[in-house]
Write a protein that binds this DNA or RNA. Structure first.
Lengths: 214, 214, 214, 214
DNA sequence: AATGAATGAGAATTCATTCAT
DNA sequence: GATGAATGAATTCTCATTCAT
């Protein structure tokens, strides 16, 4: 995990940092329970008592580690955000060529959400619970993509492309990762790689170029 | 507008259907007020009393026309969903060629959200308030796109492309329609048209093809 | 029916008395609908709109004929109270002997409640809605019984006996008239006639005496 | 007392069971307050806030111990039901002979209701609030009586007699215990004992037999 | 650190009654 | 007479947060 709890930017305030090993375990248990609770019921329907029940601790113990319901949520968004990044980054770095990198990113993203379906409910709900977290998550993600695809300092299209790619990924992850698994992640990634390489109709002849590393 | 209030699929139950002209006006006022309230505060922070205050009617009058807070929300999602569709459809129909159609769709979509910024808060929050509405909205939208771009009955990529296009549009609308207006809708639409036509790097030379109607 | 609507003692106030034949029909429809509504749902769960819906008239029309929810209820209690009395009275008058009269009263009472199961919900709920109606109903009923069984002006036991008989009848009506019909009214009436004639254990040899008219 | 709070059958759900002594005291205070509130105002007119005010606790504390207004009510019916039973049982067991047992039961019942006048409002209102409790209360009471008076396995009249006796008791308790105390409980019990022993007219000569233990 | 009882502000919902048409 | 829209007071229930032990 990248971060542990939640200040304004998703980090736990110092005075809530567990001092003992036992404390650390309890805090981790609460954060995991919160992911389960919010992933299942959403932020508003989820409750602190639901979290502590899942974590197997007393209600009051929650406030030993987090300042408020909002605070765990922020910590959670930061945590999930970091998790996706950490999961996807190595594959992107290992890819040969720009299109291949985006292909790898999408592929790993779909794989990741298939095993962490709660991520959508958590990150999307941030739009309502903590808009700053939400914006930060997507802005930094888009910037990362833009940095990868930018062809030079003059490239004015990179930002638009980055948002487009991010949007594709998010919706394809929802459709083929969370809602249904009726198509393999590799297949989806191939189709998109070809789209990025040759456009939407050029791709209808086959999406092999991506693998050759353009 | 397509629908007026809200049953399970977003339609008002018969026993809530206004029988007089006066009733019809009141119901419309409440639905508009709900769009404002939820768009501004979100579903959970928004309140029935906030809605009736905006609508200028008594609290109890709300229940003359809607069964519950959830019900107006459903009606609203159906209503907004229909509004975007109705706004974008003519431009798409009038476009010359497939790529041009998608370009027109995105262009009008960004224009629409610039004047209806509340649409994101409303449709996105449906994921938590009424998942069925949320899924229906995006599934039907994707199907509509797929129908436009499908090259033939064998075209297995159309669905993936449709979800990709929808994802691009949604995120570009958020970025360049709601969050910031630092780039013209036409510019964004051109960039994407080129991407669809020639791929991400082919497009770096210019997105003129779209206008010629491919 | 004996009475039509509801003042403090269960009669409709003059200004609510229908002047036309059409009005009379509407009022009767409302009263019958109220019996159904309250019998089915009870006073508190029952609603004016439920009544008018059953009666097939507009909500506002209710107030043309009754002053309030309490008022219909009072009218109803008076109405049902009179109905039982009117149904049971002839049988009692026609009976040969005191025990036979009580037997006939119970027999007809059970028969009556089997076809008017709502009577319990209505009269019993009066204890909470309109204690005066409730008390009046049982007091006058007890007095009627006492008058029948009193052996003379000195008979101090008659009142106690009357309440005892009324209590038996009410509970036997509930058990063998409303809740279950697993024993014939005649059978029940025979058992009680014998109890009244010879006591609880004397009766175990048979309850024939009642028929002979003691 | 037999039960403390209220599930479907009048028992508190486990998750509402107080874990500390302090909790136990609070729950008891709320239950007593509910008896007072409902006894005085009835179920529908009584309010949760009325209960917590009487109990001297915060409104929200009510829900720490009971799931709903209905739930306390159920708990209360079970509680009162058990209280009468526990109050009357020893006198019945100590009586010499069957008639004497019934006499003792009635006597103690009248005495009990004189000091717990709220019992009628509570148990009778169960007919509307929680029919299952109501039926359970009277069914088990009748069975207990039947078991006492049954002369043998063939005795088909016992059940009818049991309901008759219960009905007498309930109405005599209402008349001479709750509404008016113009006749001593002993006197009433004597009259009924004689009725049970010799029938209604046999008893006019005197009800001495009961005391001799028939 | 951990526990769980206590708090009370806040919101949705119901429905008898009034009234303009 | 009939209609049905409008009103708003009243109440139940939820739950984040605090605090004494």
């Amino acid at each position: 995990m990248a971060t542990d709890a939640a200040g304004p930017d998703g980090n736990v305030p110092v005075d809530k940092m567990p001092r003992t090993e036992r404390g650390r375990r309890t805090q981790r248990a609460i954060l995991d329970a919160a992911a389960a609770e919010f992933g299942e019921k959403g932020f508003h329907e989820g409750s602190i008592s639901g979290i502590t029940r899942r974590a197997g601790v007393a209600l009051g113990s929650f406030y030993t580690y987090f300042d408020s319901k909002d605070a765990v949520f922020r910590a959670l968004v930061a945590d999930m955000s970091a998790q996706v990044r950490d999961h996807v980054a190595p594959a992107i770095r290992g890819a040969d060529g720009r299109i291949a990198a985006e292909r790898a990113g999408l592929l790993e993203f779909i794989r990741f959400v298939r095993t962490h379906k709660e991520i959508y409910r958590i990150i999307d709900e941030a739009e309502f619970v903590d808009p700053a977290s939400f914006r930060r998550h997507y802005s930094t993600t888009a910037e990362r993509i833009a940095a990868r695809i930018r062809t030079g300092p003059e490239d004015a299209q990179a930002e638009v492309h980055a948002w487009a790619i991010m949007g594709m990924n998010v919706f394809l992850g929802l459709r083929y990762g969370v809602w249904d698994e009726d198509r393999s992640p590799e297949d989806v990634a191939d189709v998109i790689a070809s789209l990025l390489a040759r456009g939407i109709f050029g791709s209808r002849e086959g999406a092999k170029g991506a693998k050759e590393g353009i």
